[in-house]
Amino acid sequence: MNTLRNLLSGWLMTVLLLLPLALPAQAQESSHNSPLVQVQETVDQILQQLRTEPDSPVRKEAISQLIRGKFNFELMAQGALGPYWRSATALEQQRFVSLFSRLLEETYLGRIQAYTNETVRYGRQEVRSNRAEVETYIVTSSVEIPISYKLLPNDREWLVYDVVIEEVSLVRNYRSSYANILRSKGMEGLLEEMEQKLAELQQASRPKENHA
């Protein structure tokens, strides 16, 4: 009996002693580059800005910086053009990426802004064949809105290449409307319409900013 007890307590002691050594190493490895943690950090930082700073161009710029660092806009722009990406010239591609990222930013920000005062629940993350998906939910008093982020690894961190709101991929959603405009008006027509829309959106948001 005694030997058994000694053996057990000895084993327990060893485990307890080794545990602190093993735990941080493992925790560090899994959390350091975890897509979930990265998404959580970014979304929390954006919400923090929205909740604490007054509405101003400075705040908008700060949030833009946060988004730009974490989103792979070039890949998203490619996805939005779909097969038409390859037939565009390098210059057109460049113009499209710049316009598209600004439009997408407006859309994403607008949606997040509408739910500033709700809580965000973080669901599970799935990492498969070098791609990751992180589930988040905006919890309002009557509904839960699922928003997933799809990410690809960069050199150091994960970058978002798509945002899926209620099963609807934002990038994919642009594709059919852009394809339609491309067919009827060509690349130049599409770029012109995008420029116009962006000017319209900025015009609309400006008076509100002066007001605040």
């Binding site: 607008g110 099963e167 609807v168 959603n173 059919s176 409307s177 339609n180 405009i181 829309k197």
Partner: peptide, 16 residues
Amino acid sequence: EQLDPYLFIRDAYLQN
């Protein structure tokens, strides 16, 4: 925000 809201909503419905 959308260039063609009809198509955007159609595609969103379809995906959803």
